[in-house]
């Protein structure tokens, strides 16, 4: 869906405590808001829950990546030891799986870790060079320090400049500001 690139991005309410943010977010979600987001200086799992956070595919990517690493290394070792360069080591069979376990395990970890990191970046849209919220001075100065923000976005059909502002002020935030694209 094409997003409007000019005009109002949304209304941003600033709170002092995580509890206030979670409560406001829950009330907004209960009131039917779907295009909204919470911003906090640290991971706030309950906030994600109350605004109906959906599961993402990072765990699946990690699992698939890990299994790929496992298969890749185990096959590589098997191929080298049995076909490409078979060596008689202490009279053991060329296919000696116990010796293959450690590198295969290491590659599982490596691939799983890389898949998690890059999968996360691919799915969350980072790195992003621009985000309208940074137009709000209070967001810029304290979103990563000690303030908690709730943004109700203009793309939500319920959005109305006046009513939404009143709605947000009902939660007694420090401030409600309009954010431009």
């Amino acid at each position: 869906m094409a997003l409007p690139r000019e005009g109002t991005y949304g209304l941003l309410a600033e709170f002092d405590t995580p509890t206030a943010l979670v409560e406001a977010a829950k009330a907004a979600h209960d009131a039917g808001w779907r295009r909204l987001d919470c911003y906090a200086p640290y991971p706030l799992e309950e906030a994600a829950e109350v605004i109906g956070f959906h599961k993402n595919r990072v765990p699946l990517l990690t699992l698939v990546g890990g299994l790929m690493g496992l298969c890749a290394m185990f096959s590589l070792e098997t191929w080298i030891s049995t076909l490409a360069y078979p060596l008689n080591i202490a009279g053991r069979p060329t296919y000696s799986w116990p010796a293959f376990v450690v590198p295969a395990y290491e590659w599982t970890i490596l691939f799983a870790g890389l898949s998690a990191a890059f999968g996360m970046l691919a799915l969350n849209g980072l790195p992003s060079l621009y985000h309208p919220l940074f137009n709000a001075p209070n967001f810029r100065s304290s979103a990563t320090v000690d303030k908690f923000f709730l943004c109700l976005e203009a793309t939500d059909p319920k959005f109305d400049r006046v009513e939404t502002k009143n709605f947000l002020e009902g939660f007694h935030p420090n401030s409600v500001v309009e954010v431009e694209y």
């Binding site: 995580p18 509890t19 979670v22 640290y42 991971p43 706030l44 799992e45 309950e46 906030a47």
Partner: peptide
């Protein structure tokens, strides 16, 4: 003790 009785989102 005080912390564990608080809601989950109160602390990082």
């Amino acid at each position: 003790l005080a912390e564990i009785l608080e809601p989950e989102h109160a602390h990082a």
